[in-house]
Write a protein that binds this DNA or RNA. Structure first.
Lengths: 237, 237
DNA sequence: CGACTGCTTGAGTCTGCTCAATAAAGGTGG
DNA sequence: CCACCTTTATTGAGCAGACTCAAGCAGTCG
Protein backbone atom coordinates (compact mmCIF):
# COMPACT_ATOMS: atom_id res chain seq x y z
CA UNK A 1 0.00 0.00 0.00
CA UNK A 2 1.41 3.31 -1.07
CA UNK A 3 1.50 6.28 1.24
CA UNK A 4 -0.37 9.45 0.46
CA UNK A 5 2.84 11.39 -0.02
CA UNK A 6 3.63 9.47 -3.19
CA UNK A 7 0.47 10.69 -4.86
CA UNK A 8 0.58 13.73 -7.02
CA UNK A 9 -1.42 16.53 -5.49
CA UNK A 10 -4.33 16.86 -7.85
CA UNK A 11 -7.18 19.25 -7.58
CA UNK A 12 -8.18 19.77 -11.14
CA UNK A 13 -10.21 17.48 -13.32
CA UNK A 14 -9.23 16.43 -16.80
CA UNK A 15 -12.70 15.29 -17.79
CA UNK A 16 -13.61 16.15 -21.35
CA UNK A 17 -17.27 16.91 -20.72
CA UNK A 18 -16.64 18.99 -17.64
CA UNK A 19 -19.83 20.52 -16.43
CA UNK A 20 -18.82 23.94 -15.24
CA UNK A 21 -21.64 24.11 -12.72
CA UNK A 22 -19.80 21.48 -10.72
CA UNK A 23 -16.79 23.72 -10.41
CA UNK A 24 -18.66 25.29 -7.53
CA UNK A 25 -17.77 22.16 -5.65
CA UNK A 26 -14.11 22.99 -6.02
CA UNK A 27 -13.86 24.78 -2.72
CA UNK A 28 -15.83 22.47 -0.45
CA UNK A 29 -15.27 19.03 0.98
CA UNK A 30 -12.06 17.08 1.33
CA UNK A 31 -9.82 15.27 -1.10
CA UNK A 32 -9.19 11.55 -0.66
CA UNK A 33 -6.50 9.49 -2.31
CA UNK A 34 -7.21 5.86 -2.97
CA UNK A 35 -4.87 3.00 -3.78
CA UNK A 36 -5.98 0.32 -6.28
CA UNK A 37 -8.84 -1.75 -4.85
CA UNK A 38 -9.16 0.54 -1.87
CA UNK A 39 -12.75 0.95 -0.82
CA UNK A 40 -14.54 4.29 -1.06
CA UNK A 41 -17.90 3.12 0.26
CA UNK A 42 -19.73 -0.10 1.01
CA UNK A 43 -23.29 -1.00 0.13
CA UNK A 44 -25.41 -0.25 3.18
CA UNK A 45 -23.08 2.37 4.63
CA UNK A 46 -24.86 5.49 5.71
CA UNK A 47 -24.54 7.77 2.74
CA UNK A 48 -23.56 11.22 3.83
CA UNK A 49 -21.21 12.20 1.05
CA UNK A 50 -21.08 12.73 -2.68
CA UNK A 51 -17.76 12.06 -4.39
CA UNK A 52 -16.46 13.68 -7.52
CA UNK A 53 -13.65 11.87 -9.28
CA UNK A 54 -10.59 14.06 -9.76
CA UNK A 55 -8.20 11.50 -11.21
CA UNK A 56 -8.09 7.78 -11.79
CA UNK A 57 -11.05 5.43 -12.01
CA UNK A 58 -13.66 4.28 -9.52
CA UNK A 59 -15.90 1.20 -9.89
CA UNK A 60 -19.39 1.05 -8.40
CA UNK A 61 -20.56 -2.51 -7.82
CA UNK A 62 -22.96 -4.88 -6.13
CA UNK A 63 -21.97 -8.29 -4.82
CA UNK A 64 -23.80 -11.46 -3.82
CA UNK A 65 -23.15 -13.47 -0.66
CA UNK A 66 -21.30 -16.16 -2.61
CA UNK A 67 -18.84 -13.76 -4.18
CA UNK A 68 -20.33 -12.99 -7.58
CA UNK A 69 -19.93 -9.34 -8.45
CA UNK A 70 -21.55 -6.96 -10.90
CA UNK A 71 -19.89 -3.64 -11.61
CA UNK A 72 -22.63 -1.08 -12.22
CA UNK A 73 -20.49 1.72 -13.55
CA UNK A 74 -16.96 2.96 -14.01
CA UNK A 75 -16.50 6.54 -12.88
CA UNK A 76 -13.87 8.60 -14.65
CA UNK A 77 -12.59 12.10 -13.81
CA UNK A 78 -15.47 14.54 -13.62
CA UNK A 79 -18.04 11.86 -12.78
CA UNK A 80 -20.08 11.86 -9.59
CA UNK A 81 -20.21 8.82 -7.30
CA UNK A 82 -23.07 8.47 -4.87
CA UNK A 83 -25.67 10.52 -6.70
CA UNK A 84 -28.42 8.02 -6.47
CA UNK A 85 -28.32 7.32 -2.81
CA UNK A 86 -30.99 7.90 -0.23
CA UNK A 87 -30.16 7.16 3.39
CA UNK A 88 -27.64 4.48 2.55
CA UNK A 89 -25.41 3.64 -0.37
CA UNK A 90 -27.20 1.30 -2.75
CA UNK A 91 -23.88 -0.05 -3.97
CA UNK A 92 -20.24 -0.29 -3.02
CA UNK A 93 -17.45 1.67 -4.66
CA UNK A 94 -13.74 1.08 -4.84
CA UNK A 95 -10.76 2.45 -6.72
CA UNK A 96 -9.68 0.65 -9.89
CA UNK A 97 -6.26 2.27 -10.03
CA UNK A 98 -4.68 5.10 -8.07
CA UNK A 99 -7.48 7.61 -7.82
CA UNK A 100 -8.45 10.78 -6.07
CA UNK A 101 -11.88 12.15 -5.27
CA UNK A 102 -13.33 15.27 -3.73
CA UNK A 103 -15.88 14.30 -1.11
CA UNK A 104 -18.67 16.73 -0.38
CA UNK A 105 -21.23 16.17 2.38
CA UNK A 106 -24.72 15.93 0.93
CA UNK A 107 -25.81 18.61 3.36
CA UNK A 108 -23.33 21.11 1.94
CA UNK A 109 -24.34 20.07 -1.55
CA UNK A 110 -27.97 20.74 -0.82
CA UNK A 111 -27.11 24.21 0.46
CA UNK A 112 -25.14 24.98 -2.66
CA UNK A 113 -27.82 23.59 -4.93
CA UNK A 114 -30.46 25.73 -3.25
CA UNK A 115 -28.41 28.83 -4.09
CA UNK A 116 -27.46 27.69 -7.55
CA UNK A 117 -30.21 26.62 -9.94
CA UNK A 118 -27.60 25.68 -12.53
CA UNK A 119 -26.10 23.18 -10.11
CA UNK A 120 -29.51 21.75 -9.34
CA UNK A 121 -30.06 21.32 -13.05
CA UNK A 122 -26.67 19.70 -13.53
CA UNK A 123 -27.31 17.20 -10.78
CA UNK A 124 -30.63 16.30 -12.32
CA UNK A 125 -29.17 15.74 -15.74
CA UNK A 126 -26.27 13.74 -14.30
CA UNK A 127 -28.87 11.54 -12.64
CA UNK A 128 -30.71 11.20 -15.93
CA UNK A 129 -27.54 10.19 -17.72
CA UNK A 130 -26.99 7.57 -15.05
CA UNK A 131 -30.42 6.04 -15.63
CA UNK A 132 -29.91 6.05 -19.37
CA UNK A 133 -26.53 4.37 -19.02
CA UNK A 134 -27.89 1.68 -16.71
CA UNK A 135 -30.79 0.98 -19.06
CA UNK A 136 -28.55 0.73 -22.08
CA UNK A 137 -26.56 -1.88 -20.21
CA UNK A 138 -29.66 -3.84 -19.26
CA UNK A 139 -29.98 -4.51 -22.99
CA UNK A 140 -26.36 -5.61 -23.15
CA UNK A 141 -26.55 -7.95 -20.19
CA UNK A 142 -29.98 -9.34 -20.97
CA UNK A 143 -29.82 -9.77 -24.72
CA UNK A 144 -26.36 -9.36 -26.19
CA UNK A 145 -23.54 -11.80 -26.83
CA UNK A 146 -20.07 -11.54 -25.31
CA UNK A 147 -18.76 -10.12 -28.56
CA UNK A 148 -21.42 -7.44 -28.76
CA UNK A 149 -20.96 -6.44 -25.13
CA UNK A 150 -17.21 -6.14 -25.43
CA UNK A 151 -17.36 -4.17 -28.67
CA UNK A 152 -19.95 -1.88 -27.08
CA UNK A 153 -17.76 -1.47 -24.03
CA UNK A 154 -14.74 -0.46 -26.09
CA UNK A 155 -16.82 2.07 -28.00
CA UNK A 156 -18.19 3.46 -24.74
CA UNK A 157 -14.69 3.81 -23.31
CA UNK A 158 -13.50 5.41 -26.52
CA UNK A 159 -16.24 8.01 -26.21
CA UNK A 160 -15.42 8.74 -22.59
CA UNK A 161 -11.66 8.45 -22.29
CA UNK A 162 -10.39 7.69 -25.79
CA UNK A 163 -7.60 9.75 -27.34
CA UNK A 164 -6.17 10.21 -30.78
CA UNK A 165 -2.65 8.79 -31.08
CA UNK A 166 0.17 10.21 -33.22
CA UNK A 167 -0.99 8.20 -36.24
CA UNK A 168 -4.50 9.59 -35.88
CA UNK A 169 -6.02 6.34 -34.67
CA UNK A 170 -8.24 6.10 -31.61
CA UNK A 171 -6.34 4.98 -28.55
CA UNK A 172 -8.38 3.76 -25.59
CA UNK A 173 -6.57 3.32 -22.27
CA UNK A 174 -8.19 0.68 -20.09
CA UNK A 175 -7.16 1.14 -16.47
CA UNK A 176 -9.24 -1.81 -15.27
CA UNK A 177 -8.24 -5.49 -15.34
CA UNK A 178 -9.95 -8.03 -17.59
CA UNK A 179 -11.57 -9.47 -14.49
CA UNK A 180 -13.12 -6.07 -13.81
CA UNK A 181 -14.23 -5.73 -17.43
CA UNK A 182 -15.87 -9.14 -17.01
CA UNK A 183 -17.60 -8.00 -13.84
CA UNK A 184 -18.88 -4.98 -15.74
CA UNK A 185 -20.15 -6.98 -18.71
CA UNK A 186 -21.42 -10.04 -16.84
CA UNK A 187 -18.71 -12.27 -18.29
CA UNK A 188 -15.91 -14.46 -16.95
CA UNK A 189 -12.44 -12.96 -17.30
CA UNK A 190 -11.45 -15.85 -19.59
CA UNK A 191 -14.27 -14.93 -21.93
CA UNK A 192 -13.07 -11.33 -22.00
CA UNK A 193 -9.58 -12.49 -22.91
CA UNK A 194 -10.83 -14.83 -25.63
CA UNK A 195 -13.22 -12.28 -27.10
CA UNK A 196 -10.59 -9.55 -27.17
CA UNK A 197 -8.34 -11.97 -29.02
CA UNK A 198 -11.17 -12.59 -31.48
CA UNK A 199 -11.58 -8.86 -32.14
CA UNK A 200 -7.84 -8.64 -32.74
CA UNK A 201 -8.02 -11.56 -35.17
CA UNK A 202 -10.84 -9.80 -37.00
CA UNK A 203 -8.74 -6.68 -37.39
CA UNK A 204 -11.04 -4.47 -35.33
CA UNK A 205 -8.52 -3.60 -32.62
CA UNK A 206 -4.96 -4.01 -31.44
CA UNK A 207 -4.14 -4.64 -27.81
CA UNK A 208 -1.53 -2.46 -26.14
CA UNK A 209 0.91 -4.85 -24.46
CA UNK A 210 1.25 -5.32 -21.59
CA UNK A 211 -2.50 -5.00 -21.31
CA UNK A 212 -3.21 -1.32 -20.82
CA UNK A 213 -5.75 -0.50 -23.48
CA UNK A 214 -6.57 -0.98 -27.13
CA UNK A 215 -6.03 0.82 -30.41
CA UNK A 216 -9.08 0.91 -32.61
CA UNK A 217 -7.99 -0.31 -36.00
CA UNK A 218 -11.37 -0.42 -37.69
CA UNK A 219 -14.02 1.68 -36.02
CA UNK A 220 -16.76 0.68 -38.44
CA UNK A 221 -16.06 -2.98 -37.83
CA UNK A 222 -16.24 -2.47 -34.09
CA UNK A 223 -19.59 -0.73 -34.42
CA UNK A 224 -20.88 -3.59 -36.48
CA UNK A 225 -19.70 -6.06 -33.84
CA UNK A 226 -21.49 -4.06 -31.16
CA UNK A 227 -24.82 -3.92 -32.97
CA UNK A 228 -24.94 -7.32 -34.53
CA UNK A 229 -23.36 -10.35 -32.95
CA UNK A 230 -23.05 -12.15 -36.24
CA UNK A 231 -19.47 -12.84 -37.31
CA UNK A 232 -18.30 -10.35 -39.94
CA UNK A 233 -18.63 -11.30 -43.61
CA UNK A 234 -15.58 -9.36 -44.72
CA UNK A 235 -13.24 -9.05 -41.81
CA UNK A 236 -10.24 -7.20 -43.14
CA UNK A 237 -10.60 -3.93 -45.02
CA UNK B 1 -59.26 -3.79 -31.36
CA UNK B 2 -61.66 -2.47 -28.78
CA UNK B 3 -63.15 0.98 -29.00
CA UNK B 4 -62.56 3.59 -26.35
CA UNK B 5 -66.17 3.50 -25.20
CA UNK B 6 -65.75 -0.01 -23.82
CA UNK B 7 -63.10 1.19 -21.37
CA UNK B 8 -64.10 2.14 -17.88
CA UNK B 9 -63.58 5.81 -17.28
CA UNK B 10 -60.79 5.89 -14.78
CA UNK B 11 -59.20 8.94 -13.30
CA UNK B 12 -58.03 7.70 -9.96
CA UNK B 13 -55.01 5.63 -9.20
CA UNK B 14 -55.00 2.55 -7.04
CA UNK B 15 -51.25 2.58 -6.44
CA UNK B 16 -50.33 1.59 -2.93
CA UNK B 17 -47.43 3.97 -2.49
CA UNK B 18 -49.22 6.92 -3.98
CA UNK B 19 -47.12 10.01 -3.71
CA UNK B 20 -49.57 12.75 -2.92
CA UNK B 21 -47.40 15.40 -4.55
CA UNK B 22 -48.28 13.85 -7.89
CA UNK B 23 -51.96 14.44 -7.27
CA UNK B 24 -51.24 17.95 -8.49
CA UNK B 25 -51.04 16.38 -11.90
CA UNK B 26 -54.64 15.30 -11.62
CA UNK B 27 -56.03 18.33 -13.38
CA UNK B 28 -53.62 18.71 -16.26
CA UNK B 29 -52.93 16.78 -19.44
CA UNK B 30 -55.09 14.26 -21.22
CA UNK B 31 -56.07 10.67 -20.52
CA UNK B 32 -55.19 7.98 -23.04
CA UNK B 33 -56.60 4.46 -23.18
CA UNK B 34 -54.39 1.77 -24.58
CA UNK B 35 -55.26 -1.71 -25.85
CA UNK B 36 -52.85 -4.59 -25.14
CA UNK B 37 -49.59 -4.14 -27.08
CA UNK B 38 -50.63 -0.70 -28.20
CA UNK B 39 -47.67 1.64 -28.35
CA UNK B 40 -47.37 4.65 -26.07
CA UNK B 41 -44.02 5.90 -27.35
CA UNK B 42 -41.18 4.71 -29.53
CA UNK B 43 -37.48 5.02 -28.85
CA UNK B 44 -36.24 8.10 -30.65
CA UNK B 45 -39.61 9.86 -30.69
CA UNK B 46 -39.40 13.45 -29.61
CA UNK B 47 -40.24 13.32 -25.93
CA UNK B 48 -42.64 16.06 -25.02
CA UNK B 49 -44.81 14.27 -22.51
CA UNK B 50 -44.64 12.51 -19.18
CA UNK B 51 -47.16 9.74 -18.58
CA UNK B 52 -48.58 8.65 -15.26
CA UNK B 53 -50.16 5.21 -15.23
CA UNK B 54 -53.76 5.28 -14.00
CA UNK B 55 -54.71 1.65 -14.56
CA UNK B 56 -53.22 -1.42 -16.18
CA UNK B 57 -49.56 -2.03 -16.92
CA UNK B 58 -47.04 -0.42 -19.26
CA UNK B 59 -43.74 -1.96 -20.36
CA UNK B 60 -40.71 0.18 -21.22
CA UNK B 61 -38.28 -1.62 -23.52
CA UNK B 62 -35.36 -1.42 -25.91
CA UNK B 63 -35.05 -3.58 -28.99
CA UNK B 64 -32.23 -4.57 -31.33
CA UNK B 65 -32.41 -4.54 -35.13
CA UNK B 66 -32.74 -8.33 -35.27
CA UNK B 67 -35.75 -8.46 -32.96
CA UNK B 68 -34.28 -9.19 -29.56
CA UNK B 69 -36.00 -7.18 -26.87
CA UNK B 70 -35.17 -6.15 -23.32
CA UNK B 71 -37.93 -4.82 -21.12
CA UNK B 72 -36.41 -2.18 -18.83
CA UNK B 73 -39.32 -1.76 -16.48
CA UNK B 74 -42.95 -2.55 -15.87
CA UNK B 75 -44.96 0.49 -14.87
CA UNK B 76 -47.95 -0.07 -12.60
CA UNK B 77 -50.64 2.41 -11.52
CA UNK B 78 -49.03 5.45 -9.94
CA UNK B 79 -45.73 5.03 -11.78
CA UNK B 80 -44.29 7.63 -14.13
CA UNK B 81 -43.26 6.75 -17.69
CA UNK B 82 -40.83 9.01 -19.50
CA UNK B 83 -39.08 10.54 -16.52
CA UNK B 84 -35.60 9.94 -17.75
CA UNK B 85 -35.90 11.44 -21.17
CA UNK B 86 -34.08 14.39 -22.59
CA UNK B 87 -35.00 15.53 -26.08
CA UNK B 88 -36.07 12.10 -27.23
CA UNK B 89 -37.36 8.97 -25.57
CA UNK B 90 -34.49 6.68 -24.68
CA UNK B 91 -36.78 3.67 -24.85
CA UNK B 92 -40.11 2.53 -26.25
CA UNK B 93 -43.20 1.91 -24.18
CA UNK B 94 -46.31 -0.13 -24.85
CA UNK B 95 -49.32 -1.37 -22.96
CA UNK B 96 -49.14 -4.87 -21.50
CA UNK B 97 -52.89 -5.17 -20.94
CA UNK B 98 -55.72 -2.67 -21.18
CA UNK B 99 -54.23 0.41 -19.61
CA UNK B 100 -54.86 4.10 -19.14
CA UNK B 101 -52.41 6.92 -18.58
CA UNK B 102 -52.55 10.62 -17.90
CA UNK B 103 -50.19 12.42 -20.26
CA UNK B 104 -48.74 15.72 -19.14
CA UNK B 105 -46.57 17.89 -21.38
CA UNK B 106 -43.13 18.31 -19.89
CA UNK B 107 -43.51 22.06 -20.26
CA UNK B 108 -46.57 22.09 -18.01
CA UNK B 109 -44.79 19.81 -15.60
CA UNK B 110 -41.87 22.17 -15.37
CA UNK B 111 -44.23 25.06 -14.60
CA UNK B 112 -45.91 23.07 -11.86
CA UNK B 113 -42.62 21.89 -10.42
CA UNK B 114 -41.33 25.44 -10.28
CA UNK B 115 -44.30 26.40 -8.12
CA UNK B 116 -44.24 23.25 -6.04
CA UNK B 117 -41.01 22.27 -4.32
CA UNK B 118 -42.66 19.09 -3.05
CA UNK B 119 -43.35 18.01 -6.63
CA UNK B 120 -39.78 18.77 -7.60
CA UNK B 121 -38.62 16.64 -4.72
CA UNK B 122 -40.97 13.82 -5.67
CA UNK B 123 -39.75 13.79 -9.25
CA UNK B 124 -36.19 13.62 -8.04
CA UNK B 125 -36.84 10.71 -5.74
CA UNK B 126 -38.84 8.90 -8.41
CA UNK B 127 -35.82 9.26 -10.65
CA UNK B 128 -33.58 7.94 -7.90
CA UNK B 129 -35.81 4.92 -7.41
CA UNK B 130 -35.61 4.29 -11.13
CA UNK B 131 -31.80 4.24 -11.06
CA UNK B 132 -31.77 1.97 -8.05
CA UNK B 133 -34.20 -0.43 -9.71
CA UNK B 134 -32.19 -0.54 -12.93
CA UNK B 135 -28.98 -1.18 -11.01
CA UNK B 136 -30.51 -3.96 -8.97
CA UNK B 137 -31.48 -5.62 -12.22
CA UNK B 138 -28.02 -5.25 -13.67
CA UNK B 139 -26.96 -7.66 -10.94
CA UNK B 140 -29.78 -10.03 -11.88
CA UNK B 141 -29.02 -10.01 -15.59
CA UNK B 142 -25.27 -10.05 -15.27
CA UNK B 143 -24.74 -12.52 -12.47
CA UNK B 144 -27.85 -14.44 -11.47
CA UNK B 145 -29.33 -17.72 -12.68
CA UNK B 146 -32.76 -18.10 -14.26
CA UNK B 147 -34.12 -19.40 -10.97
CA UNK B 148 -32.77 -16.49 -8.96
CA UNK B 149 -34.07 -13.93 -11.44
CA UNK B 150 -37.53 -15.41 -11.53
CA UNK B 151 -37.78 -15.71 -7.76
CA UNK B 152 -36.58 -12.13 -7.44
CA UNK B 153 -39.13 -11.03 -10.00
CA UNK B 154 -42.00 -12.67 -8.16
CA UNK B 155 -40.90 -11.05 -4.91
CA UNK B 156 -40.65 -7.68 -6.62
CA UNK B 157 -44.14 -8.04 -8.06
CA UNK B 158 -45.46 -9.15 -4.69
CA UNK B 159 -44.09 -5.99 -3.15
CA UNK B 160 -45.56 -3.76 -5.83
CA UNK B 161 -48.89 -5.32 -6.73
CA UNK B 162 -49.30 -8.32 -4.43
CA UNK B 163 -52.45 -8.85 -2.39
CA UNK B 164 -53.48 -11.02 0.50
CA UNK B 165 -56.06 -13.64 -0.49
CA UNK B 166 -58.91 -14.94 1.70
CA UNK B 167 -56.65 -17.61 3.19
CA UNK B 168 -54.08 -15.00 4.13
CA UNK B 169 -51.56 -16.05 1.52
CA UNK B 170 -49.83 -13.62 -0.83
CA UNK B 171 -51.50 -13.51 -4.21
CA UNK B 172 -49.54 -11.91 -7.05
CA UNK B 173 -51.43 -11.11 -10.26
CA UNK B 174 -49.17 -11.15 -13.31
CA UNK B 175 -50.77 -9.22 -16.16
CA UNK B 176 -47.83 -9.85 -18.51
CA UNK B 177 -47.23 -12.97 -20.61
CA UNK B 178 -44.37 -15.36 -19.96
CA UNK B 179 -42.71 -14.03 -23.10
CA UNK B 180 -42.77 -10.55 -21.54
CA UNK B 181 -41.43 -11.88 -18.25
CA UNK B 182 -38.63 -13.44 -20.27
CA UNK B 183 -37.93 -10.15 -22.02
CA UNK B 184 -37.76 -8.51 -18.60
CA UNK B 185 -35.40 -11.09 -17.12
CA UNK B 186 -33.25 -11.76 -20.17
CA UNK B 187 -34.61 -15.28 -20.59
CA UNK B 188 -36.41 -17.26 -23.29
CA UNK B 189 -40.12 -17.78 -22.62
CA UNK B 190 -39.56 -21.54 -22.49
CA UNK B 191 -37.08 -21.04 -19.68
CA UNK B 192 -39.62 -18.94 -17.79
CA UNK B 193 -42.18 -21.71 -18.15
CA UNK B 194 -39.77 -24.42 -17.05
CA UNK B 195 -38.44 -22.41 -14.12
CA UNK B 196 -41.92 -21.54 -12.89
CA UNK B 197 -42.73 -25.25 -13.00
CA UNK B 198 -39.60 -25.90 -10.96
CA UNK B 199 -40.66 -23.42 -8.29
CA UNK B 200 -44.06 -25.10 -8.16
CA UNK B 201 -42.41 -28.51 -7.76
CA UNK B 202 -40.32 -27.10 -4.92
CA UNK B 203 -43.45 -25.91 -3.15
CA UNK B 204 -42.52 -22.23 -3.28
CA UNK B 205 -45.49 -21.11 -5.37
CA UNK B 206 -48.71 -22.18 -7.04
CA UNK B 207 -49.67 -20.95 -10.49
CA UNK B 208 -53.14 -19.51 -10.98
CA UNK B 209 -54.60 -21.29 -14.03
CA UNK B 210 -55.09 -20.13 -16.67
CA UNK B 211 -51.84 -18.23 -16.26
CA UNK B 212 -52.78 -15.03 -14.48
CA UNK B 213 -50.46 -14.89 -11.51
CA UNK B 214 -49.05 -16.92 -8.66
CA UNK B 215 -49.84 -17.68 -5.05
CA UNK B 216 -46.82 -17.59 -2.80
CA UNK B 217 -46.87 -20.81 -0.83
CA UNK B 218 -43.56 -20.45 0.94
CA UNK B 219 -42.22 -16.94 1.09
CA UNK B 220 -39.04 -17.90 2.89
CA UNK B 221 -38.27 -20.49 0.28
CA UNK B 222 -38.79 -17.96 -2.51
CA UNK B 223 -36.43 -15.54 -0.81
CA UNK B 224 -33.82 -18.23 -0.55
CA UNK B 225 -34.24 -19.03 -4.24
CA UNK B 226 -33.77 -15.36 -5.10
CA UNK B 227 -30.59 -14.89 -3.09
CA UNK B 228 -28.90 -18.16 -3.68
CA UNK B 229 -29.30 -20.08 -6.92
CA UNK B 230 -28.47 -23.39 -5.28
CA UNK B 231 -31.35 -25.89 -5.29
CA UNK B 232 -33.08 -26.04 -1.91
CA UNK B 233 -31.90 -28.61 0.58
CA UNK B 234 -35.32 -29.09 2.18
CA UNK B 235 -37.93 -28.27 -0.37
CA UNK B 236 -41.24 -28.88 1.31
CA UNK B 237 -42.06 -27.38 4.70
C1' DC C 1 15.47 -12.67 -7.59
C1' DG C 2 11.28 -14.76 -5.98
C1' DA C 3 6.44 -14.46 -5.21
C1' DC C 4 2.29 -12.74 -6.70
C1' DT C 5 -1.09 -11.10 -9.71
C1' DG C 6 -3.08 -10.95 -14.11
C1' DC C 7 -3.42 -12.80 -18.87
C1' DT C 8 -3.70 -16.66 -22.15
C1' DT C 9 -5.14 -20.95 -23.79
C1' DG C 10 -7.12 -25.66 -23.67
C1' DA C 11 -10.51 -29.26 -22.32
C1' DG C 12 -14.70 -30.45 -20.70
C1' DT C 13 -19.23 -29.21 -18.77
C1' DC C 14 -23.61 -27.02 -18.12
C1' DT C 15 -27.17 -23.64 -18.19
C1' DG C 16 -30.22 -21.82 -20.96
C1' DC C 17 -31.36 -21.36 -26.05
C1' DT C 18 -33.43 -23.01 -30.42
C1' DC C 19 -36.43 -25.70 -32.86
C1' DA C 20 -40.48 -28.34 -32.83
C1' DA C 21 -44.74 -30.49 -31.66
C1' DT C 22 -48.79 -30.34 -28.79
C1' DA C 23 -52.08 -28.45 -25.74
C1' DA C 24 -54.77 -24.89 -23.78
C1' DA C 25 -57.15 -20.24 -23.92
C1' DG C 26 -59.19 -16.38 -25.87
C1' DG C 27 -61.14 -13.72 -29.27
C1' DT C 28 -64.05 -13.51 -33.68
C1' DG C 29 -67.65 -14.16 -36.57
C1' DG C 30 -71.35 -16.84 -38.21
C1' DC D 1 -73.43 -20.50 -28.59
C1' DC D 2 -70.37 -22.92 -31.27
C1' DA D 3 -66.56 -23.55 -34.65
C1' DC D 4 -62.48 -21.59 -36.06
C1' DC D 5 -58.28 -19.29 -35.75
C1' DT D 6 -54.68 -17.06 -33.27
C1' DT D 7 -51.97 -16.52 -29.43
C1' DT D 8 -49.84 -18.35 -25.37
C1' DA D 9 -48.09 -22.04 -22.50
C1' DT D 10 -45.99 -26.63 -21.97
C1' DT D 11 -42.70 -30.11 -22.81
C1' DG D 12 -38.97 -32.62 -25.23
C1' DA D 13 -34.58 -33.11 -27.83
C1' DG D 14 -30.51 -31.35 -29.24
C1' DC D 15 -27.25 -27.61 -29.44
C1' DA D 16 -24.07 -23.89 -28.27
C1' DG D 17 -22.21 -19.97 -25.97
C1' DA D 18 -20.10 -19.06 -22.06
C1' DC D 19 -18.43 -21.05 -17.63
C1' DT D 20 -15.31 -23.77 -14.73
C1' DC D 21 -11.17 -25.89 -13.87
C1' DA D 22 -6.48 -26.12 -14.85
C1' DA D 23 -1.92 -25.32 -16.49
C1' DG D 24 1.48 -22.20 -18.20
C1' DC D 25 3.37 -17.64 -19.00
C1' DA D 26 4.47 -12.81 -18.44
C1' DG D 27 4.95 -8.76 -16.03
C1' DT D 28 5.35 -6.33 -11.60
C1' DC D 29 6.41 -5.34 -7.06
C1' DG D 30 8.82 -5.83 -3.03
Amino acid sequence: MRVAATYPIIDSVDARATDTAFDRLGAVGVIKYLAPHESLALEGDSADRLHRVLSGTIAGYKATADGRRQILAFFFPGDLVGLTVGERYAYSAEAVDHASVRSVPHVRLRELAAQTPALQESLLSALRREVAAAQERLLWLGRKTARERLAGFLLECDGRIGQRDKDGRRSVPLPMSQLEIGDYLGLASETVSRTLAELVRDGAIDIVRPFAGVIIRNHRHLERAADEGAPPVNARV
